[in-house]
Simulated assay, not measured.
Amino acid sequence: MSNSLLQGVRVLDLTRLLPGPHATQLLAQLGAEVIKIEDPDGGDYARSLSPALFEQVNRGKASITLDLRDAADVEAFKGLVADADVVIESFRPGVMERLGCGYDTLAAINPKLVYTALTGYGQTGPLRDAAGHDLNYLSLSGVLDQNGTAGGPPGISNVQIADLAGGALTCAVGVLSAVIGARASGQGSFVDSAMLDGSLALQSVAMATRADLGQTQPRGADILTGALPNYRVYKCRDGRYLAVGALEPKFFARLLAKLNPLPPNKARGSSQTPKPKSAEKRPSSSARKTSGWADKVSDALSDPRRARVLTKPVHWGLAALFRSRPRDAWVALLDGADACTTPVLTLEEALAHEQTRARGMQQGDALGCPLQFDGSARDALAPSPALGADNERLLNRR
């Protein structure tokens, strides 16, 4: 295990696929004992659907096989519950009750038990029994409508926002809070964690816009989705991209001071011989347009009433400028400017980046715990378990 913060906390994990296993692996990284309980007939679907994904989110766990449709296996499960701190499941509402393993039944066995149900839509409401995946929770929560470029369709991300941020991480916070409460009071609780709810709760900025303007803005038109030229992604000469996050005026002023004025031949990325001094006295069209930015534009953009007037021309000017050089040339130029600019990296580039290496986030073919405590190094978890690998140790079964 990665550390001992949760040493002595036993988690019975009935979840499958991505959100639940991601949440329980984080608990394992924090020191909890996580026992993955799987159906004897194939186990977690991810084992066959995507063995690589299974490995990413099931490291550091034990695995036992129980068929909760079998009375003897239900009794074996209840025996484990007696000594457990947490049960976490991701079935549709009512499934565990039909199996004879609902919260009331298990709480009667272990009053301190934290029972966590991680579902798409929660235990109440008209959609409680509906099927869904990350894309569905994002679409119904309004998150998907916020993603993508202006005038284009909603953007689909390969990072599962609802599953992981709205689901797994929110769920883990709920589990830990309930465990602390149970240890203080002696009474466990039922944690109802819905990925739709968790996704809605992520929309602080969109909700602020709604409060300010009376409604949300279209894709690409809110302050963090492309409306501001100082918070955008710009295409560079080589087809790669630079992220400009200079949201505060001080950062944008630093960026503009670094960019303006660029010598005309350098702004075009040209290797032509310098022009005669008489020609250089007359600034190029692009230089004339950008002159004075460092003194005026930054402060103007901090005023919402003036920002809407200045947004498009400033964006056009920056877009044309960034297209004049390759991405890494801009990275080199802006190095040390402290202006919140970064290259848009592929995952491979991100893993190789010096900051990632310094933090020790990559552990072989997997990612480490995103938290550090007392500056200690992250320990790698053991590989994911084989199906039923711990039957003999935990169930006295071969």
Score class of each variant (00 low, 15 high):
Leu310His: 13
Leu334Gly: 06
His315Gly: 14
Val314Thr: 14
Ala339Trp: 08
Thr342Ile: 05
Pro274Phe: 12
Pro304Thr: 06
Thr273Ala: 15
Ala294Asp: 06
Ala319Gly: 02
Arg282Gln: 11
Arg268Glu: 12
Gly292Tyr: 00
Ser271Ile: 07
Leu333Phe: 08
Trp316Lys: 15
Leu321Asn: 12
Ala337Leu: 03
Leu333Pro: 02
Arg306Met: 13
Lys296Asn: 14
Ser291Leu: 13
Trp293Glu: 06
Pro283Ser: 01
Lys296Cys: 10
Arg282His: 08
Thr311Ala: 14
Cys340Leu: 09
His315Met: 04
Arg288Ala: 10
Arg327Met: 14
Ser298His: 15
Lys275Phe: 03
Arg325Ile: 03
Ala339Thr: 03
Ala332Ser: 13
Glu280Asn: 10
Leu334Gln: 11
Leu310Asp: 05
Thr273Arg: 15
Ser271Cys: 03
Ser291Glu: 10
Arg305Tyr: 01
Ala320Ile: 04
Val309Trp: 08
Trp316Ser: 11
Gly317Met: 05
Lys275Leu: 13
Gly336Leu: 00
Ser286Asp: 12
Asp335Tyr: 05
Gln272Trp: 07
Ala307Phe: 04
Arg327Cys: 13
Gly292Asp: 02
Asp335Cys: 05
Arg327Pro: 02
Pro326Cys: 06
Ala294Ser: 13
Ala329Pro: 00
Lys312Gly: 11
Val314Lys: 09
Leu321Ala: 01
Lys312Met: 02
Arg288Asp: 00
Thr273Trp: 01
Asp299Gly: 15
Pro326Leu: 02
Arg306Trp: 00
Leu301Ala: 12
Trp316Leu: 12
Arg288Tyr: 09
Trp316Val: 12
Trp293Tyr: 09
Ala287Met: 05
His315Ser: 01
Ser324Trp: 01
Ser271Arg: 08
Lys289Pro: 03
Asp303Met: 03
Ala319Glu: 12
Pro304Asp: 09
Leu334Thr: 03
Arg282Thr: 12
Arg305His: 06
Ala320Arg: 13
Val314Met: 13
Arg306Leu: 15
Asp303Tyr: 00
Pro326Ile: 00
Asp295Lys: 08
Val331Arg: 01
Thr311His: 14
Leu318Asp: 09
Thr311Val: 05
Pro313Ala: 10
Pro304Val: 01
Pro326Asn: 15
Ser270Arg: 08
Ser291Trp: 11
Trp316Thr: 13
Phe322Ser: 05
Asp328Tyr: 04
Phe322Tyr: 00
Lys312Ala: 15
Ser298Ala: 15
Asp299His: 10
Ala319Asp: 11
Ser270Met: 03
Ser302Glu: 07
Ala294Met: 10
His315Val: 01
Trp316Asn: 14
Leu321Ile: 02
Glu280Phe: 01
Lys277Arg: 09
Leu301Lys: 07
Thr342Glu: 11
Ala300Pro: 01
Ser298Asp: 12
